[in-house]
């Protein structure tokens, strides 16, 4: 990994600046606090509505119901944001990973042991999301952790999987989400409307695909470049200050 200099010459800002800013921040915090204070101490928000419709949503965990049914449009766009960040990071060309010759044996051993556990745990989180805290994002994050662990061990994706196949897995969650969401339009429903009896299964399907895509995307973000492209020699200056 390329290292950047963390310590730079930062002149301490003058007392005046710090004081001004301090006062302003205090004012900001104070006014925010006052605003929050002035809110009613009890507010139902939408919890009643959420609870009322939860049977129709196909899942019993209210958060998952909001995420993947009531406000699934937000979640769809959010998968888009993640993919977009990946597009962005890849478009930067990436800074190439220097192959380190030394692999920490403890890390190596741990990763061999931990990665399967992580994958299993990720599956559990995905499944439990239907009725208890958990769900695609949590599961995806754990999956990504497994990927990070592998990368730290200098693991590399085989070349034949790093092209179209990788890209396909990355977009799978989003595409499946759109496909299922739009599929019922042809059965006279609106976009993202699922028949209540099928909702549970469909949500699990979407979440499974999303978990995979989220996990791989996050790991790919960690890698920081398109693995199918050989490191760009122009960008990889190797300057080390």
């Amino acid at each position: 990994m390329r290292k950047i200099k963390l310590k730079i010459l930062e002149k301490k800002p003058s007392l005046f600046t710090r004081l001004t800013l301090g006062i302003l921040m205090f004012l900001l915090a104070a006014s925010l606090a006052y605003a929050v204070w002035s809110l009613p101490t009890q507010a139902l928000g939408l919890s009643a509505e959420v609870a009322k419709n939860v049977e129709m949503s196909g899942v019993s965990n209210p958060v998952t119901a909001v995420l993947l049914n009531y406000r699934s449009y937000d979640t769809l766009l959010e998968l888009g944001v993640l993919l977009l960040a990946l597009f962005g990071v890849w478009s930067l060309g990436g800074v190439s990973a220097n192959k380190s010759s030394f692999v920490n044996p403890i890390l190596d051993f741990l990763s061999r042991f931990l990665v399967p556990v992580f994958i299993l745990f990720s599956g559990y989180l995905l499944w439990v999301g239907g009725f208890a805290p958990g769900g695609a994002f949590q599961a995806g994050a754990v999956l990504a952790a497994a990927g990070v662990l592998l990368f730290l061990n200098d693991w590399q994706l085989e070349r034949k999987y790093s092209g179209f196949s990788l890209r396909f897995v990355l977009v799978l969650g989003l595409v499946l989400f759109v496909a299922i969401g739009f599929g019922f339009v042809f059965l006279d429903r609106v976009f993202l409307e699922y028949p209540p009896q099928l909702a549970g299964g469909l949500i699990l399907l979407i979440e499974a695909a999303a978990t995979l895509s989220i996990g791989i995307s996050l790991a790919a973000l960690f890698l920081g470049r398109d693995p199918s492209v050989k490191s760009d020699s122009k960008i990889d200056t190797g300057v080390h200050k």
Partner: peptide, 21 residues
């Protein structure tokens, strides 16, 4: 602030979205 043990789920979901963003 719902008054019972179950908090409002909508902001929770929004925060998950926010975190991913």
């Amino acid at each position: 602030r719902t008054g019972d043990a179950v908090p409002d789920a909508v902001p929770h979901a929004m925060v998950i979205t926010g975190i991913v963003v």
